[in-house]
Each structure stands twice: as structure tokens, then as C-alpha cells.
Computed example of a mutant assay.
Amino acid sequence: MDHVLILGGTQFFGKRLVHTLLENGKKVTLATRGQKADPFGDKVQRLAIDREDSQSLKEAFANQTFDIVYDQSCFSPQEALDSANALRGKARKYIFTSSQAVYDFGTNRTEEEFDPYHFSFNYKTRQEYPGYLGYQEAKRAAESVLFTQTDFEVTAVRLPIVIGPDDYTKRLTFHVDKVKKNEPIGIENPDARYSFIHSKEAAEFLYLMGASSFTGPINPGCEEDISLLELVGKIEKQTRHKAIITNILTKENTSPYSLPGPWSINTNKVKQLGYTFSSLDSVLEEIIM
């Protein structure tokens, strides 16, 4: 039986990942701050850690060994380095939940368009990475640490936007609610295109990467991308309400997906490895209510 450590795992598709691991007979240990309840009862072991306190990691992982580590909660290179040091010699494989945000704005981004092996950065705390550009740098730098400064078999899963009925961020729901209530949606660039993945398939893919011999960065997700204008159009069709779109952005109306440019990925590599994902149309039809 594989012993799996999850750093995080108490929210959104992280919970789905835990369920998948347990259903497949894995021994699971969750390492979190212990501030969020989880639904797993005595089916998992728990360790208390603080990602910003390296000593807490050393103490939590002392006298522990794992087969696979899933890192769901890393938001700085310092956290990546501290975790790697605390787990040195204690695990074989490290699956890092990264993001399509490692790529510059654009569409059809391939894995080769960000090289973590040749990325220069400064070590900062998560508080020093504000906004989406800060998030981009943090994920880039964390990947660089894991690929260049550790002895693990590392896979960086560069997830696109994750959506599902269990999405606690309510970012897609924001748009649906605005359309139903005939309230304006502020969108800076309605033609910007984005990639998505269902939360269930994100968790399943992470699980499969733990069982796979693949290492390196990988782009999973729906093959198709979609513009925000097209997304709102699908909401209009399913809700039978007309959307109000404005380029005058306010705190109340700005779309959570409204960014200065597009972010979408090329999924050819993951398809070549034999993995398939639901069509974006079917995913959106399921979730838009």
C-alpha cells in the first residue's frame, strides 16, 4: 500500500483527490495548519504544519516516510525549498499542483514555453507575491526549486482554471448570478480566451500522475478554450436571461476572470500520453445552472 502525503487537501479538488486515493486503497496523511475541518474522519492521518515555518515541517515529518507527495498548498519558492528539505530522503515522487499562470498571456501555450530549469528568482514569502503577476512568479519559482534543487521524481501539473459544483471560489457562479439578476458584468477584454478543467477530472489526473512514471511539466484540461464573451453566451442560453456586459469596471461588477490578456493551454502532450478530458461544452452544461 502506498503511503501518500498531501500538503493541503482540505478544499475543492484537493478533497476529491483524497477521496480518490482512499477509494484506491492508499494510506493518506494530510499536512495542514489544522484550521479547516475535513470530512475524512479516521480514514486519514493528520499532521499540523505551517508552510511559512520551516521548523514545523521538520518536526512534523521527523520519523516519517512516504511514497508520493502531493503539494496542493505551495505559494512561494521558500515554501517549496523548506518542504523539499524537510522531506529529503523521505519520499520518492513529488506531484506539484502548478498552474497555467506560469505562462505569459497568450493562447495555446505548450509546456516548453516556460522552462523552470532556467528561471532566475529571489526567495520571497507568499505575502510578497500580490496579484496575478505575483501568483505567476511564485508558481514559476516554486517549480524551479522542485526541478533543480531536489532529488524527487517531480511532476508539475499546470492546471488551467478549475471549475465544478464544489468550487468554493464561486468565480463561475458570479457570472451566472449576474446574468440571472440582470446585473452588469465588468469585463476588460471580452475576447480573451481561457482554458478550463472539471474539478473531478483535475483530481483524477493528479491521482494518475502519482501512479505514472511521467516526470516534468504537463498541461491537463479540456481541449477547447473559450472567450469570456462566449462563456457569457452559454450562460445566457442555459439561463434564458440576457447578459449585461460593460467595460466600466467596478469592485462589484468586475468578472473574476477579467484579466489583461488570455491564458489558454495546448493539451497535445497530455493526449499523446493517453489521457482524455471531457469537452468544455459538456463541463459547462453540467455546472451552469
Rank of each mutant, 00 (worst) to 15 (best):
T173V: 07
K234I: 09
D177V: 01
L229H: 14
S213L: 14
A138D: 10
E153D: 13
G131C: 12
P165T: 15
L159T: 00
E204I: 13
Q149N: 01
D191L: 11
F214G: 13
I163D: 03
I187W: 04
P184V: 03
P165D: 15
I161M: 14
Y207H: 11
T125F: 12
S227N: 10
H175D: 04
Y194I: 05
K237W: 14
E137L: 06
A202I: 03
A192H: 06
A138F: 04
S199W: 00
R158M: 09
G134L: 09
E223T: 12
A202R: 00
F214P: 14
A203C: 07
V162R: 02
Q238T: 15
E204V: 09
L146C: 08
E143T: 01
D225N: 13
G210K: 06
Y123K: 09
T155Y: 09
G221S: 06
S227P: 00
E143A: 03
P190L: 13
Y123F: 14
G210C: 02
R193A: 05
Q136E: 14
P190E: 10
S144D: 02
L172A: 00
Q127I: 01
P165C: 15
S213H: 15
K234A: 10
P130N: 11
L159Q: 02
C222R: 06
F152C: 06
I218M: 05
G221M: 05
P130M: 10
